[in-house]
Each structure stands twice: as C-alpha cells, then as structure tokens.
Design a protein around this nucleic acid. Structure first.
Lengths: 234, 234
DNA sequence: ACAAAAGTGTTTGGAATACACCCATGC
DNA sequence: GCATGGGTGTATTCCAAACACTTTTGT
C-alpha cells in the first residue's frame, strides 16, 4: 500500500462483492470439503471457504474459478452458483456481498498446491468441519443441502470420481452425500437403466476381492437426452 | 444532481449491485408477469423487470421488497432468490451485478398502484412478453424455468391464488405453469392425499355450474411435516 | 477353502395412469 | 332438460423395494 494510492469514487456508496466456494471432494470413503486457513485479518488463522474479491473485468463465476486456481491450484471443475449472501454485517471489514458457488472435484485433482492468498489449504470430512470465518458455516450448510437435493435429479455424482469409475464407487458417493444406505442391486439396475454409462473393457482393480467393471459417464448422450425431455432421477 | 454532491471513494473499484424481480401472477386463466415501463435512460420507454440499487443498510431481499413496494405497491408476497447475473457488459451504465428474485403474488394483490421510479406497470401473459431492457429476457427465462421446476416439489401454487380457493382453480395454476393438461380425478386425489388442505364450509361460487368446494392451505402443517422429512411432490 | 466384494433375477406392494358415471346448478 | 363444471371409484400398469444366490479374487 503506497502513499499515492489510487482511489475510485462514486456518487453513491457501493458494497464490495466477493465470491466464496464450497468445494466437495470424495476420497473413496466419505465426503470432504476444502478449507483455507486465513493468512490475514480478519479471522486470521481461522478456516474459511476459498474466495476473494470480484474484479471489474470478470464475472462472478470467472472470479470463483480464478480464486480457486490461485488458492488451491484446482482447475476445470464442476462449478455452479449457489446463493448470494448479503447480510449487512456479515463481514467486519464493511459491506460485503458474496456470491457463493459450490464445486465438485474429481479425486484425481485432490492433490493441492499452496497458493499465495492463503497460508494453508486442507480437506475436512464433512462431519468434522471446524467453526468457520465470517458466515461461512451458514454457506456450507446451504451448499451441503443443495448438493443433497441436486444429486437426486441430476447426474453429478460422476464429478466426484475419476473419469473411469465403478458402480460400487458411485454408490458410495451417493451414500456418503445422502447419508443413507441403499441396496446394491436396486442401485445398479437404476443406474444402468439410464443407459448413460459406457463400459470400459479391461477391469483392473486389485484388492482382496473380485474386480469391478469400469465405466465412463457419457456426458454428450446425457445432454442430448436432457434436451429431449429426459429426466434423470435418483 | 447538485454541484457539491458527495462522493464515496474506495481503494479498489467496485461494481454496483441491484436487484430485479420476476413477478408471477395468475388471473384464473393464464400465467402473467409484471413489467415496468422504464421512465429514464437507459432503455427509456422499454419494458423491464422491476428493481433497483441495493442500499448499504439493507439485504438484497429487503431491497427487492422495497423496490417492489415502491414501484408496484405490492407487499407481503412470496419472494425467493433466483440467481445473480454478473456479465461484465450487461448494463450500459457500467459494471452492474444484479441479484434477481422471483415472486408469486395472489390474485387479490393484482391491483396495481403507480410508483415513482417507473411511469407504468403492467401485467403480460407469459407467452406475450415484449422484448425487455438489459438482460431481463434471460432473467425471465431463468425465472420461468425455476418456477416450472419448483412447483413440482414444493407447494407454492397456493401463493398465486387467494387465501381461499378451489381444487379446479389450483389445477389451472399447475396447468398454466407447466403447460400441460392433467386428469382432474388424479390431480384431486393427489392433492388431497397430502392432507394439507383445510375445507371451508360455505361453498359460494355462483357461475353456470355446480359450486366447487373451497379450501385453505395449511402452511403450519406443511412446515411441521416438512421438518419431519415429508416430501411434497407434484 | 474361505472371506470379501461384485454381479444378477424375482417377487411383491403401492402408486400413477387411464377411464366412466353421477350430481348440482344456471340458462 | 340440457349444457357445463364438479365430485367420486376402479382396473391396470409400472416402478420401487425387498430379498438370496452365484462368481471371482486374494490369502
């Protein structure tokens, strides 16, 4: 911050606008979310959702993707707008409105690289999340609720797995998000009935059991069907 | 605009933040939306969604309610956040991010009073909407899609009718929103199976046919059931 | 050969669909 | 008494839920 810093003046006062992301990951067992340990005040040292201020030449989604890349190194993820939080006192620095997003990342992208804005990034199991900075606890709750609702009627479970996955893996994704147990056979039949999975020939798994068949999700086919009125459900 | 006008200066540039509302109404026959004829530039004379700038001491929802009351006189309506639009060039006045809402108003509140920000407010059938100012065509499309999706799994059709209504009226609401015809008998049974309607004794209608039974939606009962895991559907 | 995980098929109950008849009112 | 709109019941179809056995692989 130099002495002769530039300022921007307006006829009426304006709020700041930020974006915040709730990033969900799946480690094969349970649902995780990605948090950043804040390196600066306010809430220095506390965990928070990654995010930052919106620039004048980027949309909020572009901002969310940029901040995500800067703070965690994650690119090319599933990202969807969640909700805009505008409580007058939600940020001690002043009036800050945040456009929140929720994201799903593939386990391949689980590896993190330290960014510059934050001193640390870490995954937390959804049921062991510490108290968060700002109103991020609330944002996280809304994001989790949205995910639970959304996974029932849109095929987004795949976004948490690698390109190639098995049906039991996908089932575990569903179970960990919804917090329920489902019947293997019924789940299998249901998923297969949509005819949206492309089978992969070589079934390499390699644990103390029978190897599972591998599949790839056919995104184009889904888009085509959807535009013709097809409805994915459960 | 006086000579010695106050200005507000910040270290970094900030976008303006507005709210815009897509207001749905039902006249007994078809779905309508409420538009405002713009009295000032830009887009002067064109139709637009009602809305305005967010003040520093109000949430975006409070802003939406305030603008709605000012421009249309409508109060106490069903209002829900829709989406935040942030395209860099969506407003010729500069960088403006809008937090949009969608609203459902009862036919009782159909009567409009002229506001000050706008020279005219008028209802348009959803299929006869003129070209709108800014990116409001897009916002309207998103709002209509959301309404179509939402009405299937939340009991919000009631919000478009008066406190007391008949089942056939409710059915027409559903049909006009979804653009489909449904079977009277099945609709009736389905709605009644939820046990969320309180019957009203005197059935006064008075048109060239048999008077229909009247009901009231039991909001408390719905909230109670919902919190116990009940799911409304269709 | 045994344990652990994955694949598959059948039965059953309940809900959604389709469909037809009777009643009340206004003209 | 006829047209219009409102109310109710039943058969069929389909999907979801519950459930058991066989196969493969690693030890």
């Amino acid at each position: 911050m130099s002495e002769d810093k530039k300022t921007y003046c307006y006829e009426y006062p304006r709020p700041s606008v930020t974006t915040d992301c709730t990033i969900f990951g799946f480690d094969g067992i349970e649902l995780n979310i990605l948090l950043i340990k804040r390196g600066i005040e306010p809430f220095k040292g506390q965990w928070a959702l990654p995010g930052g201020f919106v620039q004048m030449d980027e949309t909020t989604e572009e901002c969310a993707r940029r901040e995500l890349a800067e703070e965690t190194g994650i690119r090319d993820l599933f990202l969807e707008q969640l909700y805009t939080f505008s409580d007058v006192n939600r940020d001690p620095r002043g009036r800050v409105i945040t456009v929140s997003y929720f994201a799903l990342v593939k386990s391949t992208d689980f590896k993190l690289v330290g960014g510059d804005d934050a001193s640390d990034a870490q995954w937390f199991p959804i049921n062991q999340v510490p108290s968060l900075a700002f109103d991020h606890d609330r944002i996280l709750r809304v994001a989790h609720d949205r995910l639970k609702g959304k996974i029932k009627y849109e095929p987004i479970g795949f976004e948490l797995l690698e390109e190639v996955f098995t049906i039991p893996q996908l089932q575990r994704v569903y179970e960990s998000i919804l917090g329920v147990q489902v019947d293997r056979r019924n789940f299998n039949r249901k998923i297969m009935s949509f005819d949206l999975l492309e089978a992969i020939e070589n079934k390499v798994d390699g644990l103390g059991h029978k190897g599972a068949r591998q599949f790839r999700f056919d995104k184009e086919k889904y888009q085509a069907l959807k535009s013709r009125g097809f409805n994915f459900e459960l």
